[in-house]
Design a protein around this nucleic acid. Structure first.
Lengths: 344, 344
DNA sequence: CTGAAAGCGCTTACAG
DNA sequence: CTGAAAGCGCTTACAG
């Protein structure tokens, strides 16, 4: 007699399954599941048996089966506009530190400052049944907003602070940061102050910093100028080029507020090369408070944003919501502070 | 009569399922599945119907169900030792650019230069049935190696190049890079050359660069010194501190090769502050070729590694393996080149 | 505290 | 080219 031939053969996802462990331990699969997910609901004696079986077999739970059955996964997508900017890296590190300790996995999405890509990413990432989602910014396509509103999962919008977040919101006011820097420059005696940033349509948080500066200039009765913009991203190289370009175009300026430290540090380095005295001929300021900003010569006046804290706070609030515990108000202003240094 | 009461109510993972689309389009669910995953296997007329239904209902496939059924997911974990180092960010960007275009998701793991954390990460991440896995470095715990060998999925080890990779290997020879820099410094006339790097037990690629330098010194019959090490990571701040510390300890040195550009740039900035002439009093060199290295004053001599290319190549080779197509040899040397600038 | 049954939403393996 | 059935490996919802 031939043994019965199985009609269907399937690929096995994992070598060892819950069933294998259950057989080894002499219990039902569901008991193994409980021993792993809520140990307290299983008697100590069975739990011990099961723990041994798990260890002996080297059992690793299949995340897909678990997620499919429970309709929730320990995945948390984090959507940022860029990785080139060190700011988002630090936010991501802050998030990861918290998530990993709780057994959650971070799924990285990069929109490259493109709101349509953001929609596509959100749509795809929701297919992973995430426990929640963290997304940079408050500005989204209508469809993105609808997806996030309708997904029934906690959402944290980070970096900036607004009045109508989708759900939770952790960040700082970029226009207030701009005003803060404007007031500093004015107090220092600068009177012809310009703003330099690339591609402000995409990086609208930089645009808000410009608006904040503009408000300070208006309040002081000083001349207001449109921002000096250019196509492209932010790097020290570009910052250096822009310093020279802007000074050629508007030689009357006595201070420049760059959209971020990457640009401002480049401007400082280029000024040194070109023999432009900072702040004697022109003052230079940045935004972010990257480590390097304190080390240049002259050191850079900038606004320090608590990136790591943003990430940690966002992750904590998300996990608290998932767990059903309270984590205080849904809107957290992490603030920022002015670091006054030699360049202004 | 009451309608029959369903005995079990379950959470629905996604609002719209394959079945919903199938009903709307008047076909079987499997046909919808085919229309989405291998459109060519469905007749154009049905495909059109299905496309409409998908769009109308806003269907997003449940990744977990798909992964569970097929025992493969479009997930590719990438395990790096650090995110603070810009080098790994650029590698990750390179990987992501390729993966995203093919509909794969990157799952980020950060070992923080801890091989036990690496083992735990690999174990967890394999629970996601990844299509393959990319991991930085060739040095792993025995258990990590066993997990990767036994997982039956393509593995790419990146950054450095070795003779016994687990599977595929994309990187460069760090000892050769060290030798290259050593030969450059010797050719420039420097004779008392030191190496500075933090925590070389963990960052053993930096250690390999030291060994390469040491080999060049030996070949030239010059005095060899143990590396100047310290506890802690790499940042411009630390680089500046170390410059002063090493010069106090070994004032006879006429050139310093720093383990990376983060340290070296900090050393250059600190030298400027402290009035130490570079390269007159002491030459300074780095490794990586970060953008900022070309902008300091003096600009930094360094070795440029093709980070983005490493990421792209690793991702391409992994996907080729998944697809069963060829992508050339399993071991790719991406090389590196010396950028000779003002600091040496 | 423990378990048998049903089901999560897909894809595989056949069959036509 | 299309489909009915079975199954992927878990968890939920009951029942005891």
């Amino acid at each position: 007699m031939n043994p019965p031939i199985p009609l269907r053969r399937r690929v096995r996802t994992s070598a060892v399954t819950l069933k294998d462990v259950a057989e080894r331990a002499g219990v039902a699969p569901i008991t193994v599941s409980r021993a792993i997910n809520s140990p307290d609901s299983v008697s100590p004696s069975l739990r011990a048996l099961i723990d041994v079986a798990v260890a002996e077999l080297g059992y690793v739970p299949n995340r897909f089966a678990g997620a499919l059955a429970s309709a929730e996964s320990r995945i948390i997508p984090v959507i940022v506009p860029s990785l080139s900017n060190a700011v988002f890296i630090e936010v991501i590190e802050g998030i990861q530190a918290i998530l990993e300790a709780e057994g959650y996995q971070l799924l990285l999405g990069n929109t490259q400052y493109d709101l349509e890509r953001e929609t596509a990413l959100v749509s795809t990432l929701l297919g992973w049944s995430p426990a929640g989602i963290i997304v940079a910014g408050l500005r989204h396509a209508e469809r993105t907003r609808a997806l996030l509103r309708g997904c029934g999962r906690p959402v944290v919008e980070i970096m900036e602070l607004g009045t109508r977040p989708i759900d939770m919101n952790v960040g700082l006011s970029h226009s207030r940061a701009g005003t803060m820097m404007g007031e500093h420059l004015i107090a220092r005696g600068y009177r012809r102050i310009g703003f330099v940033g690339g591609w402000l349509d995409g990086d609208y948080r930089a645009m808000q910093r410009f608006r904040g500066l503009d408000r300070a200039l208006a309040a002081a009765g000083l001349e207001r100028r449109p921002p000096f913009t250019f196509a492209g991203g932010s790097s020290p190289e570009i910052g250096g080029d822009q310093l020279l370009a802007v000074m050629a175009q508007a030689p009357e300026l006595d201070a420049l507020f760059f959209a971020n430290d990457d640009l401002a540090v480049g401007a400082l380095l280029r000024a040194a090369h070109a023999g432009i005295a900072v702040p004697g001929r022109i003052a230079i300021a940045g935004f972010n408070g990257l480590g390097i900003s304190a080390l240049t010569r002259p050191s850079l006046t900038t606004i320090v944003s608590p990136r790591c804290l943003i990430g940690e706070t966002a992750a904590r609030k998300l996990l608290a919501r998932v767990a059903g515990t309270s984590s205080g108000p849904d809107r957290v202003d992490v603030g920022c502070h002015l670091a006054i240094r030699e360049s202004t």
